[in-house]
Simulated assay, not measured.
Amino acid sequence: MDKKHTVDKQVFGQRLKYLMTNFNETTYSMSRKFNLSPPSISRYTRGEMAPKITTIREMAAYFDVSPLWLMGRPGSMYEREVLDDTEPFGAEVTLSVFGSIKYQLPVFSNEKTIHTLTLPSDQLAKWGPVFAMEITDASMEPTLMKNDFVVVRLNTFLKSGDLTALHVGESDLKIRKVSFRKNQVILQPHNPAFEVEIYDLNKDNVQVIGSVVYQKRVFERFFECY
């Protein structure tokens, strides 16, 4: 095999497991998505074997990461290298911006807006897996204005004080400041016109998707157009 197509099985397995954890994917969901057997996915994550290059390309596209990074190469996970090209794409990465994030769909299967957001690749590498979305309501004003862009880092941990992206029940993704009281999570809007929401972590279906790590104001976007 060509040296630049060589896969480091151990590193590939570690990185695949990391992505699966952050995207809430299981061995079985991955096997369905990529038409592979569950035992094969398990062997990949244990570093015992690696898939074909075409499958690595498909996985990298799904997780929105560099295929070379997924293969075990050093460098940013968000550099958009092409497997047949030894030159890095550049110092910036352009993210698609999603609108409403539906409960029943994986994040990256939702409908994208016409907008994009460009950020330094080294900053994205520090954050890990992320996605960009447009704020669609006024619940967090003045902190997050309607039509602002935010970058959400994928994680499943609730931390008091964070601006957290989450589903409650089967609702579209919402962003709220979260705090805790015993077994309850309190979702605090910043706009007084919206009500505080309180849910029982043991009874209510609260699904954390991630936390906000970056914001771009709507007026900053407009200035860029002129």
Rank of each mutant, 00 (worst) to 15 (best):
L187T: 08
E197L: 09
Q207M: 13
S211P: 05
G161I: 09
D162H: 11
N202A: 15
V178W: 01
S171C: 04
P189D: 05
R153P: 07
V206W: 05
A193S: 10
A193P: 04
N191Y: 05
L173I: 01
N183M: 11
V185S: 03
N155C: 15
K174M: 12
F149N: 05
V208Y: 01
L173R: 00
V178D: 05
K174C: 14
V168N: 02
V218N: 14
K177P: 07
H167Y: 02
I175F: 01
F149W: 14
L201A: 13
L201G: 07
S211K: 12
K159H: 09
E195A: 14
V206K: 08
I209H: 06
L187S: 14
L166N: 07
R153N: 10
V168A: 08
R217G: 11
A165N: 00
Q207F: 10
R217W: 08
E197P: 02
L158G: 12
V218L: 12
R181Y: 15
K174G: 10
L158V: 07
F149K: 12
K159L: 11
F149G: 03
N205V: 07
R153S: 06
Y199C: 10
N202W: 09
N155G: 12
Y214M: 08
F194T: 03
L187C: 12
N191K: 09
I186G: 06
L163I: 04
F157H: 14
Q184S: 11
L163D: 06
P192I: 09
V168R: 04
L163H: 06
N202G: 12
V212C: 04
N205Q: 09
I209Q: 06
N191C: 11
T164S: 10
N183R: 14
K203T: 14
F157N: 15
Y214W: 13
L158D: 06
A165D: 03
V218W: 09
L187E: 04
F194Y: 13
V185L: 09
V178C: 04
D204Q: 08
R217P: 05
E197M: 11
T164K: 02
G169L: 01
P189W: 04
E195K: 13
V152L: 04
V150W: 10
G169E: 00
S211H: 05
T164Q: 03
L163C: 07
Q215T: 15
H190Y: 14
G210K: 01
G169W: 00
